[in-house]
């Protein structure tokens, strides 16, 4: 079973965001593997353990992304591929075009990714890749039973959950579920450095920048206005509760 996991490196959830001109300042921000991609890697490793397969982790980004790829290798993935997009201004179309091209050159039975990246929260790259590659997608998967030629998965849908069967190859995107990603083991960390990490550019996968040019353009970035601290309602609980109820009705007019 050949398993390919699409991975993104993102800002740490605790990262403080500041602007550098009209861009997000990336200096000094600690970077982590997108948490939903960790679920995908874990799912991939479990499928690998069941079928004696091979897990390849693929990402788009600069050299700093190697840290997140190395983490995936330390968790137990076998190979990593990092494609440098050669540009800062990219969108989901760009990323999906590159990933699909890179993955298209690999053997795969199943494609996995996180259902969203916590930085831009756009929830569309994996879907786009599936569309380009012509494989079915199931998003927000919380459980997956994978067999040789099909997967039966449980996924979140609006207002509940569904059990869906798809033939392989398919793209499954991981939502937080019962699957807890493993921590890399110390041995895994030592082995990771011996595993192949392929660093390539657009030319290596037969793309030119124009083919992957973004469709969406970011016009401006800003920081949200700080929510003004509100008022503390003083007094004993009974008194405070009464006053709060009054404020909600008369001042905030929300009930």
């Amino acid at each position: 079973m050949k398993i390919v996991v699409l991975m993104k490196q993102v800002f740490d959830t605790e990262a403080k965001i500041s602007l550098d001109g009209n861009k997000i300042n990336k200096q000094g921000v600690s970077l982590v593997m997108n948490p939903y991609d960790e679920y995908a890697v874990e799912l991939g490793l479990r499928i690998k353990e069941k079928f004696k397969g091979e897990v390849t982790v693929v990402s788009v980004g600069g050299p700093e992304v190697q840290d997140a790829l190395r983490q995936a290798l330390a968790m137990g993935a076998d190979k990593a591929v990092l494609v440098d997009p050669g540009a800062d201004e990219i969108d989901e179309y760009t990323t999906a075009t590159i990933l699909a091209k890179a993955i298209g050159g690999l053997e795969y039975n199943i494609l996995l990714g996180g259902f969203k990246a916590i930085d831009d929260g756009s929830c569309q790259v994996c879907g786009r890749v599936a569309e380009i590659l012509g494989v079915p997608v199931v998003n927000m998967v919380t459980q997956a039973e994978v067999e040789e030629d099909k997967a039966v998965v449980t996924c979140d849908i609006d207002g509940g959950s569904a059990v869906i069967e798809v033939k392989l190859p398919a793209m499954l995107t991981a939502q937080k579920g019962e699957i807890e990603p493993r921590y890399p083991s110390m041995k895994g960390i030592m082995q990771a450095k011996k595993k192949p990490m392929q660093k390539i550019g657009l030319g290596d996968i037969g793309l030119d920048a124009a083919q992957a040019a973004p469709k969406v353009k970011a016009l401006s970035y800003s920081l949200p206005a700080a929510r003004a601290a509100g008022k503390l309602v003083p007094g004993e609980p009974a008194e405070a509760a009464k006053e709060l109820a009054r404020l909600l009705r008369e001042e905030a007019k929300v009930i």
Partner: peptide
């Protein structure tokens, strides 16, 4: 921006070769 809205949007955007801004 619901589970199904996001899902169909990504597929359609790619099929139409266009951009999609979510959430």
């Amino acid at each position: 921006c619901s589970a199904s809205g996001r899902d169909v949007a990504a597929q359609v955007a790619q099929r139409l070769g266009t951009g999609l801004m979510t959430d």
